[in-house]
Amino acid sequence: MSCQTARFCFRSIGLFTQCERSCGVEKSSLFTGVNQLSLQRSFSQSKMPKKDKTSKSTQKQPETPAGPVSTLKDGQLAISIHAKPGAKQNAVTDVSSEAVGVAIAAPPSEGEANAELVRYLSKVLELKKSEIVLDKGSKSRDKIIKVSASISKEEVLEKLQREAAS
Rank of each mutant, 00 (worst) to 15 (best):
S152F: 04
V92G: 03
I145P: 02
E131Q: 11
S80Q: 11
V124T: 09
I151T: 12
G111W: 02
V133H: 12
K139Q: 15
D142V: 00
A115W: 03
N90H: 13
S138W: 08
D135Q: 14
I104G: 02
K129D: 14
V133M: 14
K159F: 10
L117M: 11
D74S: 08
E112G: 06
S148E: 04
V95R: 09
E98S: 14
K123G: 05
I79L: 15
Q76G: 13
R119D: 14
L157T: 06
R119L: 11
P107V: 01
P107F: 03
S70N: 02
K123N: 13
S80G: 01
D94A: 15
P107A: 11
R141W: 08
H82G: 08
A91N: 15
P108Q: 05
I79H: 00
V133N: 09
I81H: 06
S150D: 13
V147R: 07
S140I: 00
V133T: 14
N114F: 00
S122D: 00
V156N: 06
V100P: 03
V102L: 11
P107N: 14
K136G: 00
V147S: 05
E154G: 07
S122Y: 00
S148F: 08
V95Y: 08
V124S: 03
G86R: 10
K159V: 02
L72T: 12
K84V: 07
T71M: 05
P107K: 14
V100H: 01
A78T: 00
K136C: 08
K129F: 00
S96M: 06
A115K: 14
K88R: 15
V156H: 04
G111D: 13
I144F: 11
S150L: 12
E155M: 02
I132L: 13
I145E: 04
E155N: 08
S138M: 06
E155T: 12
A113W: 12
G75H: 09
A99E: 02
P107T: 12
T93C: 11
I104M: 03
K84H: 13
E126C: 03
L127Y: 07
A99F: 13
S130A: 11
L77C: 05
V133R: 13
R141K: 06
A149S: 14
E126Q: 08
N90L: 01
G75Q: 03
R141E: 14
I144P: 10
G75V: 01
I132N: 05
K146N: 07
I81D: 10
E126F: 01
K123S: 14
K136M: 05
E155K: 15
S138R: 12
A87D: 07
I79K: 00
A106G: 10
V102W: 04
S122W: 01
E110I: 00
E126D: 13
L125N: 00
D135T: 10
S148T: 12
G137Y: 05
P108K: 02
V147E: 03
G75N: 05
A99D: 06
L72P: 01
K73F: 03
K143R: 11
K88N: 15
D142L: 15
G75R: 09
L127P: 01
A87S: 13
V95A: 04
K129S: 14
A105R: 01
K159R: 15
V92L: 09
S150P: 02
V102P: 10
V92K: 05
D94V: 04
L72F: 08
G101M: 10
G101T: 07
K128Q: 13
E98K: 15
A105H: 07
E98W: 10
K88S: 15
K146W: 07
D74N: 11
